[in-house]
Design a protein around this nucleic acid. Structure first.
Length: 349
DNA sequence: AACCCGTCCAACCGCATCGAA
DNA sequence: CTTCGATGCGGTTGGACGGGT
């Protein structure tokens, strides 16, 4: 397997192309075709390696290249194809006339990937992130702190502080802990670049739920228009857990669509609705809406009431047993996903 | 005005793959 | 079948640019 010699080794030019070089390359290819990229630079009078010429042509000079921002449809296509093909940029590019693999790759890395992460999805698998346990050490430390706080409260009580004062103190400690919990989970979700998929689905769902609740920056794939969402990824067949953000609309999905989605689920892939009509899925942004930001942590009841009851989080509770089911939503949709048997957790709720 | 910082994207690097000899 | 040159592909880099302080 031979490798192209490095440009440097041959004293060939590297770096940005000049207009003159562009014109030479363009003129030569338009006249003769690119032929052998290896010999092209010499024939075209360019002091560049063939590789560089090919790249310049395919990514910039080619006449059929479309410039400008990616359209909504192109975004959707990229999301969908990436969920199916992964980082096969050239394969994705073949479905987007006028767009180069490099351009798509850049767009993915600078826009779409970040948005998926913000939404709590693993950009590689297009599934909910499952690295919630990465925050576990922090939770343990906070739990220890909480115990210390409890001990202090007892001491205060024994030293003559009133019961009401102790209750307020404990409530404040709880709220502080909850805030830390939410922030640490949100941070973990947003910051980690990739996650192993071996963690439990419950943890992933919990992490996603937290991410959806916590992240004030949670935005849609496109905040301006209705956006289809990873429908199939919103439901994990194995666990039956629903995930916020992406759910079928109120109308039941046809069996045919179910079959398609089941197939997608079997592959562990999600669909971004390329083949879905816009009204087949809930607007992912509507799910989080304007009041989807971090609830006011100074008041738990307010925080709960501020949650988007009609949004995906609550809808997920309706559609699934994970969050309690039925129209009567739990004030906080995620508690059951946290160590449900842990008295420390239940004590909070 | 100067500096810092984050974002964007063109271009490079190195490995993978293909096909001819 | 093996070797080797050519090309394709994906990851990464670094400079330009713009916004904030």
């Amino acid at each position: 397997m031979g490798r192209s010699p490095c440009c440097d080794e041959n004293g060939l030019k590297k770096g940005p192309w000049t207009q003159e070089e562009d014109e030479k390359l363009l003129h030569y290819i338009q006249t003769n075709g690119h032929g052998s990229w290896r010999t092209l630079p010499r024939l075209a009078g360019l002091n560049r390696c063939g590789k560089s010429c090919r790249l310049r042509w395919t990514n910039y000079l080619r006449p059929d290249i479309k410039r400008g921002k990616f359209s909504q449809e192109e975004e959707q296509t990229i999301l969908h194809l990436h969920s199916v093909l992964g980082n096969k940029w050239s394969a994705i590019a073949t479905h987007l006339p006028g767009r180069t693999d490099n351009e798509i790759k850049n767009f993915w890395n600078t826009h779409l990937k970040k948005r998926l992460i913000q939404m709590g999805f693993d950009p590689m698998t297009h599934r909910p992130r499952t690295d919630f346990f990465a925050a576990l050490p922090q939770l343990i430390a906070l739990a220890a702190l909480r115990e210390q706080l409890g001990g202090t409260a007892v001491a205060d009580q024994s030293s003559g502080a009133g019961a009401a004062g102790v209750a307020i103190f404990e409530q404040a400690a709880k709220l502080q802990y909850l805030q830390s919990l939410l922030q640490s989970a949100a941070t973990t979700i947003a910051a980690a670049s990739s996650a192993p998929s071996s963690d439990t689905e419950a943890a992933g769902a919990a992490a996603l739920a937290l991410g959806a609740i916590c992240s004030p920056q949670l935005t849609a794939l496109d905040s301006s228009t209705t956006t289809t969402a990873p429908v199939s990824s919103s439901v994990d067949n194995a666990s039956g857990q629903l995930l916020p953000c992406t759910f079928p609309a109120e109308a039941p999905v046809s069996s045919e669509e179910d079959e398609t989605k089941n197939q997608q689920q079997q592959t562990g892939l999600s669909s971004y609705g390329l083949s879905c009509r816009a009204d087949d899925v809930v607007d992912v942004f509507a799910c989080h809406g304007g009041n989807s930001s971090l609830p006011a942590l100074t008041d738990l009841s307010d925080a709960a009431s501020n949650l988007p009851v009609d949004g995906c989080i609550m809808r997920s509770a309706t559609a699934s047993s994970s969050f309690g089911g039925g129209s009567s939503c739990s004030p906080l949709p995620w508690p059951e996903l946290f160590f449900p048997d842990d008295p420390f957790i239940t004590d909070f709720l």
